[in-house]
C-alpha cells in the first residue's frame, strides 16, 4: 500500500465513522430502548473491568510515587508528594490509564462480538426480524460505557493515590498523615470536574469506534481479527489525541470558570 491509498482509506473510514456517529446519536435517547441489554453490559463492562483497573491503578500510582519522591527529596520537599500525586492522577493519569485499559479490554470484545455476528449473518438476521442492530447492540454498550467508565476512573484514581500512599509510608518515609493532608488539599472541585469530564468523552470514543468497526467488518474470521486489532489501536490513539486536545483547549476554560 502506498501513502496515497492509506490516506484515502483513512479519509473514507473517517467519513463512515462520522455518518455512523450521527446515526448512533440519533438513537441513544429514543425508544425502543433495550434496558436489559444495557444492564447486562454495565455489569459485563464495568464489574468485569474492575480487577484490571485496580491492578493497573495501584502499580501505576506506585511507580509514579517512587519517581516523584526521589525527585522531590532533592528539593527537600518530599512532603508535597501527596499534592503532586493528586494533580497528576485525577487530571491525567487516572482517566487516561483507565480509558486505555478499558479500551484494550472492552473495545476488542465489542468489535469481535459484533464483527463475528456480522460475518455469520446474525446482523442481517436481526434486521430481517425487525430489529435495528444499532439500537439492540450499539446503544446499550454506549450507555453502559457512559455510566461505568467514570465510575472505573474514580476507582483508578483512588487506588493509584492509595498506591502512592504505600510508597510514601514504607519507602519514602513520609508520614501517612502528611500524605493524606496534601492529598485532600489538592482534591479540589476543579481537579475533580476536569478529571471526571474526560471519561465521558473517552466512553463515547470507545463505544462509537468499537461498534463501528464491528459493523463494518468484512472478510470472515480474518476480517474479525483485523477489525478487532484496528479497533483497539484506533480507540487508544483517539483517546490520547482527544485527551491532549481537551487538556490544551478546554481545561483552561474550565479553570477560568471556577
Amino acid at each position: 500500500m502506498n501513502l496515497l491509498s492509506i490516506i484515502k482509506r483513512f479519509a473514507y473510514d473517517l467519513q463512515g465513522l462520522t455518518f455512523y456517529s450521527f446515526r448512533l446519536f440519533g438513537k441513544i435517547l429514543s425508544r425502543p430502548m433495550y434496558l436489559m441489554e444495557t444492564f447486562e453490559q454495565m455489569y459485563f463492562l464495568g464489574v468485569g473491568s474492575l480487577f484490571l483497573v485496580v491492578l493497573t491503578g495501584v502499580f501505576a500510582g506506585q511507580g509514579m510515587a517512587l519517581q516523584f519522591s526521589i525527585e522531590l527529596a532533592d528539593f527537600g520537599s518530599k512532603n508535597y508528594l501527596g499534592r503532586v500525586m493528586v494533580i497528576a492522577i485525577t487530571r491525567e493519569l487516572g482517566p487516561v490509564l483507565c480509558g486505555l485499559m478499558v479500551a484494550a479490554r472492552v473495545a476488542a470484545g465489542i468489535t469481535a462480538e459484533i464483527g463475528s455476528m456480522k460475518s455469520s449473518e446474525q446482523i442481517e438476521a436481526l434486521r430481517a426480524f425487525g430489529i435495528d442492530p444499532i439500537r439492540k447492540l450499539a446503544v446499550p454498550r454506549f450507555w453502559a460505557l457512559m455510566v461505568m467508565l467514570p465510575v472505573l476512573t474514580i476507582v483508578t484514581d483512588f487506588v493509584a493515590i492509595y498506591g502512592g500512599y504505600i510508597i510514601a509510608v514504607y519507602i519514602a518515609n513520609i508520614s501517612g498523615a502528611v500524605y493524606w493532608t496534601n492529598v485532600t488539599a489538592k482534591l479540589t472541585l476543579g481537579n475533580f470536574i476536569i478529571g471526571l469530564s474526560k471519561p465521558f468523552i473517552f466512553a463515547a470514543i470507545i463505544a462509537i469506534i468499537s461498534t463501528y468497526m464491528g459493523f463494518s467488518t468484512v472478510g470472515g474470521t480474518r476480517g474479525v481479527g483485523r477489525s478487532t486489532t484496528e479497533s483497539v489501536v484506533a480507540c487508544s490513539i483517539s483517546i490520547l489525541f482527544i485527551n491532549f486536545l481537551f487538556t490544551r483547549l478546554l481545561v483552561p476554560q474550565i479553570q477560568g470558570l471556577l
Binding site: 455476528m117 455469520s120 449473518e121 446474525q122 442481517e124 438476521a125 436481526l126 430481517a128
Partner: peptide, 9 residues
C-alpha cells in the same frame, strides 16, 4: 427468513 447459513443468534 431462513438464512443460508442458519444465522442463529
Amino acid at each position: 427468513f431462513v438464512f443460508q447459513g442458519g444465522a442463529l443468534f
